[in-house]
Write a protein that binds this DNA or RNA. Structure first.
Lengths: 342, 342
DNA sequence: CAGACAAATGGTAGCGCTACCATGCAAGGG
DNA sequence: CCCTTGCATGGTAGCGCTACCATTTGTCTG
């Protein structure tokens, strides 16, 4: 009674096994699984029973090969540990968990070259959609995206020239808003502290600069940055540097919340009063910002929603209903807290 | 001169195109790409030239179908945003970035049922290896792992009964060590504060309990837990609860560093002296623990290494050299800091 | 120098699935 | 009553690649 199993297949049931058991053609099984509406209810039930009994699970590789389309979302992010991208990715996962789509994440390590390489690898799989972080692709990466033959969503930022679709917000506006808030609170010698300085950080810095120049208070010596990856420890160190360089500093707009937390800890340690002597503003508004003592003002960004929205737009496009609005600005929200309440 | 392209294929070059251009058989191209040693240098060069000129990238789906083995590592973690797993995943990505293997991550949301579902999905792809977090699989999940037909590495914890291989450490010992440290520092009414309370948290709690019982100081009222996901905010709230319940509390061992940070902030806010009035120990030793004021004692765990080691073991097994040591205990390290220095 | 053997290359036949094109049949139109 | 139309189902032919089994050539052994 042993079936003449081929040399290779590990012996798991195939669509032909299901078809035989259900007494129908293989193609009908295929249809029953993918477009139930096109198969009569009778057969559908029979087929489902056979599927259950055999424990049949379609082979996605065979499926992808035959249909020239893999049920995969390719996702490219520059970092896996940075909470910001982790939240976006979580949104993507949650939105796709009930769909047949798998997710393939690529970590570009903030490198354009690596991004190109991964896009080429992803492209070879004919993904159903691509979601990439950022809008500063290299020309070659951009070309790969344009020729991917599937919906593409650029996330995290908005800009004038989407490859296909975009979901994000203006980091420049975020930086400006944060800085203007410090100015309105009466701070004058406001520093900018930034790590990593990827394109988004650069634009936050540009927003800071715009606000400071508008107030006639800009001074390049107020800026302290490093290409080193961001961390709480680094925030502390950069703040010390900034203070050494510019002892009259009375406020800081931080690249992100890790840095801001590092600044706060250093203030504790050096007995610098926050917000009296120094005002602090962070970026992203992680959970800890509103719990810290004092709580830290931060620019809340909608990271999880960026992920869910990107998926929704891609799914719509796959279904043939590309959204009318190709650029979605989810905005941000300034969360005023104790660290700037003087 | 237009090639008679099939109705489906998007027109990208196939192995046959490369073979034609290089003037060799398709199978030789296949070999040149996978086992260069088995093809003469002459042909290898010719083939490489054709590959470069055409921009040929092998179709992983066709490859997987033909070889009954996908070059994919399946990775199952309970959370994507929890820094602990993000670090493990980062280790996995970094270790595989130069290999032909792709990575497919599944998020189980701490659910055994979801883990089963994902294992079934992953299994249908015939992955090259599976890496799963934890050792408490459901019987069905365990069976799926055993029948996966590929190396399996359970990570984060060690235990007596691996499905195949294991890399991690003893959370029980970690909890005990942390608690013993508090005891040695002279704290007596030591509380346990824990969120989520997944199996690993449970074992840390068991370690705490063992240490307290050994010291004759155990009291169930010292334990404050919740199934709610961990956060800094939650740490603050749980600490307040704990203190309300047991005002004589003089130390806390926290489930993880987020909780510990929340405790520290609440101490600041309530003017409770750390370490004089309250000693605090965290778990995992995130970056911020040594920067905070005061710095927080924590149990450092080797999360990134767990990821890299798991990959190394799986790769060895794939290559036919399963490691002799199937259970690898990477241990942990108690980082003594100001929060327990009284 | 025949025979054995290894190394390099190629042909063929699938892997498991779906696109495409029948086929059969009931319902509706002239 | 024939012809169209549409629906449900099935057969066939690949998708692009690799496992398996030749075949060819060169090298070594006795």
């Amino acid at each position: 009674m042993t079936k003449p199993r081929s040399r290779r297949g590990g012996g798991r049931p195939t669509i032909a096994d299901v078809a035989r058991k259900a007494g129908v053609g293989a193609i009908t099984v295929s249809r029953a699984l993918r477009e139930p509406g096109r198969v009569s209810e009778d057969l559908r039930r029979q087929i489902q029973a056979a599927v259950d009994e055999l424990g049949y699970v379609p082979d996605p590789n065979a499926r992808a090969l035959a249909s020239a389309r893999a049920e995969v979302f390719g996702v490219l992010v520059p970092s896996l540990t940075n909470n910001v991208f982790a939240e976006v990715v979580r949104g993507i996962y949650d939105s796709l968990s009930d769909s047949p789509f798998r997710i393939q994440i690529g970590n570009t390590h903030y490198s354009g070259l690596e991004e190109e390489r991964l896009l080429q690898v992803f492209g070879s799989q004919r993904p159903a959609a691509l979601i990439v972080a950022g809008i500063d692709q290299t020309p070659r990466a951009r070309r790969l995206l344009e020729n991917a033959g599937c919906p593409v969503v650029q996330v995290m930022e908005t800009g004038p020239d989407p490859v296909d679709m975009m979901v994000g917000f203006s980091h420049l506006d975020g930086g400006r808003t944060a800085t203007e808030h410090l100015l309105q609170a009466g701070y004058r010698r406001i520093g900018f502290i930034g790590a990593r300085m990827d394109p988004r950080s650069q634009r936050r810095l540009a927003g800071y600069r715009a606000a400071m120049e508008a107030a006639g208070l800009f001074d390049p010596r107020l800026i302290t940055t490093t290409p080193v990856p961001s961390s709480v420890t680094l925030g502390r160190e950069l703040f010390r540097d900034a203070l050494a360089k510019m002892p009259t500093l009375d406020g800081v707009f931080c690249n992100n919340d890790d840095i801001a937390l590092g600044v706060l800890f250093e203030c504790h340690r050096a007995s610098i009063d926050v917000p009296k002597q120094i005002g602090i503003v962070g970026f992203n508004d992680l959970d800890m910002m509103h719990v810290s003592f004092p709580s830290i003002t931060s620019v809340r960004t909608h990271r999880y929603e960026i992920g869910t929205r990107a998926v929704a737009m891609a799914l719509a496009a796959i279904a043939g209903n590309p959204p009318e609005q190709r650029i979605v600005d989810l905005g941000f929200e300034l969360m005023r807290r104790e660290s700037t309440a003087r």
